[in-house]
Amino acid sequence: MIESPLEPGCLRIAVPRGNLFSGTVDLLENVGFDVGELRDNERKLTFEVGEGRTIISTRPADVPTYVEYGAADAGIVGKDVLLEQGRNVYELADLEYGACRIVYATPAGRDPEDELRHLGVTRVATKYPNIARRYFEELGMQVEVIELKGSIELAPQVDLAEGIVDLTATGETLRQNNLVERAEIDVSTARFIANRVSHKLKARMIDELARRLVEASRK
């Protein structure tokens, strides 16, 4: 039988396999978790890491889902995912690693504002349709948001879109694809989140973990 995730004394934590993964594993190691298997075994999905704590590794975009439903008590996920999904989870701490920026970019040598004046609507390709829609709505700009699952920077090259909204850490991918950043929409770092019921029924364990994660991330 699968043990209830909210069993007292146990804590189930969702971590993202993705850009944040290695930084997350390092951090968990620094707070004293036994992460050897988590680091080495890419196929396994759940890991016992000592002191009654279980790690489940998932796709980054799925971490808030597990936590919102209570299938995990807590989780680590990028702020970009939280901003995009708006899930009902508690955001308890900024762990400060995995910094990147969500930017609006268009091809170099073209004037997006001039094109917009003529056409009235511009097309924006993105993995973050909600963030993009919110941003352009606030600007009062009419855009057609085109949702893609990956390789967003391809869209302007094949005339699928006039611009993109995407995550960038160094700006290297943008440069390689001849894209110029036009605006920074948001900044994202790793966050520690908790389920709202676990936050109360397992208050001590969750606060303790949050404190240790923050301490280790500031070292």
Partner: peptide, 11 residues
């Protein structure tokens, strides 16, 4: 106040 049950992820 909120009513919480250990088996549920929401009040």
């Amino acid at each position: 106040f909120e009513v919480l049950s250990g088996g549920l992820g929401f009040p």
